[in-house]
Design a protein around this nucleic acid. Structure first.
Lengths: 226, 226, 226, 226
DNA sequence: CGATAAGCGAGACGGTACGTCAAGTCTTATA
DNA sequence: TATAAGACTTGACGTACCGTCTCGCTTATCG
């Protein structure tokens, strides 16, 4: 499962120094945070990690793979909550999504994907390793909501996931400021109104069983509509 | 108007050759489409445009500015429709938005914005010149809808615009496939359900006054479920 | 005789601005003194002279010709003395030669001659305008000395002139320090001993009719031989 | 010895390819001979040598250093003869000096020294590596002559060396034609007459023990006149 | 237990693009 | 027609990074 480093280390000969993997990934993250994807120099990363260029290329075939591994190195799993309060779950799940993306250095994801030299394989790998987990968490949360009857049956789950995920990414890419919990909740409310079987009931349930993610501000916006 | 090129051409001396501006921008677009942002070589662009590097740097101070000008060179204005059918207007407006972004070579926007070397000024310029026009068209369409009473009064217009715009950008950046009219309509419907004062009325109006953008498929999905 | 500027100004149309010639030559000399031949930028010269590049090229076909004209602009004629004291005349004449060359900015002559692009014509022009005058002064001085019987009849005047001139140039090119009068005199004495019909007589005459150029140090070196 | 290239190659890492040094220096000499110093393009040299620009800059920090190394690469050591015939030795030694300088492509030395960008260090290096060896050979020859009593005791050896060296350089720089052995001998005779303790004796010795460097023409000029 | 295979740091290798600068020519509007 | 201004093409400059390679050395495992 050790996704990160080893291309395919040989069984014989001197074994790889495992500490180098971590040192390089950390150094790469620092460099990415400092100079962005375009300004990333592999020789600088190697020096900062106390190693050399060939050691990098022994582990990752291209610059892109190294960056991908570095990003993967720092994300933590998104564990979708399941409190049976659809609105709360969705807000929290999306919050985790946002957190995962905002933890990455800004201005790295997009150039990485667009670098082209590594073609579709890289995009696929990126999706599998970085993007799908939080996305699947959102999808799972939505599926649970549908299964318990909170959503209309004709709702296109894929489209809804895209709507939510795109909002997160939009901010991560163009956003001047980070996405606040307040904004997340507002987005969730708007989307839910569009897909809920009985939105007022969901809202009532959320007010009755407030989640820890700022339940008070959560409903302030729509309170007058009640 | 001050479209693409001239940084600030002097009033005296030999005037700039206007044909060079266009030739360079066209060549740059071709090169971007062929090799992506990272693979863009200014000397290659200059050669393809039948001119030289200094002529480029005389017009655009950095690679980013040139690319920005090239992108701006090919987008056409988004004229928001106003047929008083909220759903139709919104779908068409968003379709224009998508078209504008999909006309750009893929994998250019993101690295351009993330290149960093030009800092915040570039992001601002990008927003002003490329992003805001279609965005404002959507906002205007939404504002018209609200003014004619189609939307709830407490709707956050900014948030809604972001939700729609982010969906477009998401596809333009991560999208494997282009965004189809069908997807646009589905997204519009979902969002509208979340913000409409009386969604069934909007839907009925759209069905009574079908727009040219595939009105039949448009409502097929949800109409039967009602 | 106006050697400097005008390539061949037309008789009709707007007449050339004569002040530009002088301004350019002066600016060129300043620039040469500051940055040497290799660091000379014509556009910088034009700006410093308050004019433009085309105005320069209208007057001098190449960079080399401009430099040549600039050097010529500042040299003054070498008037060979004729006091019938061979040693004094020669020393003074050579001193004028040295002065003429040391007045020129260092490190300009040689690169100018070696620039090649202007071929033999430039070398010829250089010789005619800059080098031959002081050289001819030395040759004249030597010829006068021979005519009055101070030199052996078989002396090769051309060779002797070259020996003396080369010493001057050597210092102007490789010399770390300027050539002092003392060194000039020592060189003259050595050469004279090699070509004089009766060196002791010349020496005695120089001592009897001391020239203003430091007569005391002049003979100090050889005094013990007396 | 430390001939041409390596600035200061590190002891660790991949060692430099020695063949590149030679290939570059040879290519540089060819280019210098073809286009002169001013027309020397480092990228052209690199291409001609089958290598790349960075490989050049790794070895020589500036264009000047490369040219200096190239010149040094082709000069051979000047071994001063010691036949106890002062006149013969001096003539041969000076002939070697001339040969060494005329082997260099014309019009390179002077612009190299005048390029300025490398300052005094370059001039010093040039002196040490190229100029001093033949110069010291002449000085040694003169010192031997003095030690065996052939020269007057008050002769300034430094000045004499300068007189002879300057004659060589003068021709190498301004010379239209190469310096012939005949001219060398004439110059030696003239100078020797100025510094010999007993010139007729030296001349007689040279005639009695003729050297291989054209002894017959050597004295033809002056012998009859006596 | 010694050979061998692969790891290691270091850095040179050929390429390629960068952004700048100068040369010499041209094209304006103005005088 | 000359002028000032400046845009034009060409091409070298010196630097930086890429991904590969070669070195001398160290460290395991296998024979």
């Amino acid at each position: 499962m050790s996704t990160g480093g080893a291309g395919e280390p040989s069984r014989t000969g001197r074994p790889r120094d495992e500490t180098i993997d971590a040192a390089v990934l950390t150094a790469a993250l620092d460099a990415l945070a400092a100079d962005g994807y375009g300004g990333l120099s592999l020789v600088a990363v190697a020096r900062a990690a106390g190693t050399s260029k060939p050691a990098l290329y022994r582990r990752w075939p291209t610059k892109q793979r190294l960056v991908l591994a570095a990003l993967e190195h720092q994300v933590q799993a998104v564990e979708p909550p399941d409190t049976s309060c659809t609105m709360c779950d969705l807000a929290e799940c999306l919050g985790l999504f946002v957190t995962a993306f905002e933890a990455m250095p800004p201005g790295v994801l997009a150039p990485l994907l667009a670098d082209g030299q590594d073609g579709e394989d890289l995009r696929e790998e990126f999706m599998t390793r970085l993007f799908d987990p939080p996305r699947d968490a959102v999808r799972l949360t939505l599926a649970r909501a549908r299964d318990r009857g909170d959503l209309r049956l004709d709702v296109d789950l894929g489209l809804t996931v895209d709507l939510l995920a795109s909002f997160v990414c939009y901010r991560a890419m163009f956003g001047h400021a980070p996405t606040t919990p307040r904004e997340i909740e507002a987005a969730v409310e708007t989307i839910l109104q569009g897909i809920a079987a009985d939105y007022p009931a969901l809202l009532a349930r959320a007010q009755g069983e407030p989640v820890e993610v700022g339940p008070h501000e959560l409903h302030a916006a729509h309170a007058p509509t009640r």
